[in-house]
Amino acid sequence: MQTPQLQRSAFLLLLATVTIAFGWVLLPFAGAVLWSLALAILFTPVYRRLVRRLGGRRNLAALITLTVALVIVILPLFMIAMSLVAQVAQVSQRIRSGEISFSSYFQQVVAAIPRWALDLLDRLGLGDVESMIAKVAQGAAAASQQIAAHALSIGQNTFEFLVSFGLMLYLLYFLLRDGRELSAIVRNALPLARPHTNFLLNKFTTVIRATIKGNIVVAAVQGVIGGLALWALGVQGALLWGVVMSFLSLLPAVGAALIWLPVAIYFLATGSLWQGITLILIGVFVIGLVDNVLRPLLVGKDTQMPDYIVLMSTVGGLALFGINGFVIGPVIAAMFMAAWHVFATTREPGDDSPPV
């Protein structure tokens, strides 16, 4: 005999199964879905203003908003990516030919170390300079091979990229146009009290908007400043290192310094004092100031998360999910904190049951 409890359990099992299966189907295009959702959240205020000005014509407003997103965000990134691929191939060729030799750069830095410092390294068991140079040479060779392999894979995966890119634009259009209705469906479908649902979904959208807006602005500013500084100082591949600096700046506090600080040390060690001092001043007082001022203002203030939570969730997200992790990590951390906040504030004294 079929009881209501059995029917409900069977339906919940079916619901979980089809949900997992649908997620599995979308998994190859998870990045496209993530960025279409993120861009929809970011550009929804623009879409709503256009709807009011165009007298409620939602299709036209969504199309104009999509064009604005293309012009402001997507096309500039696409152009930078194309220039970056060309420069990556050029730099990797110079590394293979020996024109750029990280081992020789390292050897010049070691040669400039004072004798007392070398004696100290000997006492600490770190004075085997030849083995260190050999390791640097091996690392440079491996890095050049990886760079060349990634540049080749970018060319080979052009079709997959175009499919994902087209899917992202397609989804972005409908998420802009039908976002309010889809949001209402999600709110009504979640088996939570309405205040809890609104709180969690609002936290979700706020964190995505703040993370993308803040991190992309900080990364772009640091990458542009760092790239221009390296170009002005005559460093080869300034565009490449500026883009790498932008990606590394997703790591709060220490990211961009992983590029400009070794270059400044090389300048100082090889006698280019004014170049080294100039780069250190720019790195500390300009690039560092951007990170210390803009990031808390744009990210931490809106997400209402401590800086150390933002740092750990960003690093963990990047380690687990790649470039998409700088959004996914903070979102997971924010939802974790929000869910526990709901749990803690809805329990009554002496009540050991979870909130409903």
Rank of each mutant, 00 (worst) to 15 (best):
L279R: 02
V299C: 03
I280Q: 03
T303M: 09
G300M: 12
D302N: 15
I277P: 06
T303V: 09
G276K: 00
D302S: 14
V284F: 05
V293F: 11
V299A: 08
R295G: 06
V284T: 03
V293W: 13
V286K: 03
P306T: 10
L298V: 09
V290N: 09
V293Y: 08
R295S: 11
P296F: 00
D291N: 03
G283T: 06
L281Q: 06
Q304N: 13
L298Q: 02
T278K: 12
L281P: 01
D291W: 04
L298C: 08
V284D: 11
G288V: 03
D302V: 12
L294V: 05
I287A: 12
L289M: 15
D302M: 07
T303H: 12
P296K: 05
L289R: 14
M305Y: 02
I282T: 10
G288Y: 06
D291Y: 00
Q304E: 15
V299L: 11
T303G: 10
P296R: 10
V290W: 11
L279Y: 02
L279E: 02
L297H: 15
T278I: 08
G276Q: 00
G276T: 00
I287H: 12
P296Y: 07
D291V: 03
I277L: 11
P306K: 07
L298G: 08
P296V: 07
P306H: 06
F285D: 04
R295P: 12
G276D: 01
I280K: 02
I277R: 06
F285P: 02
D302L: 10
D302G: 11
P296W: 00
G300E: 13
I277W: 11
D291H: 09
F285W: 05
L289K: 10
Q304C: 15
V293D: 13
V293K: 14
K301T: 15
N292H: 08
I287N: 03
L289H: 05
P306C: 11
G283E: 00
G288N: 08
I280G: 07
G288T: 01
L297I: 07
L294D: 07
V284N: 09
V284H: 12
D291M: 05
I282K: 09
I282D: 05
L279V: 04
V290G: 01
P296I: 10
F285T: 04
I277F: 06
L294M: 09
K301F: 10
L281R: 12
V293G: 13
L297G: 12
G276I: 02
F285V: 01
V286G: 07
L281N: 04
R295E: 03
L297V: 04
K301Y: 13
L294E: 01
R295D: 00
I277K: 03
Q304R: 14
L297K: 13
L281F: 08
D291A: 08
G276F: 01
R295T: 01
T278R: 01
N292G: 05
T278G: 10
G276V: 02
P296D: 09
I277T: 07
L289I: 15
V293I: 11
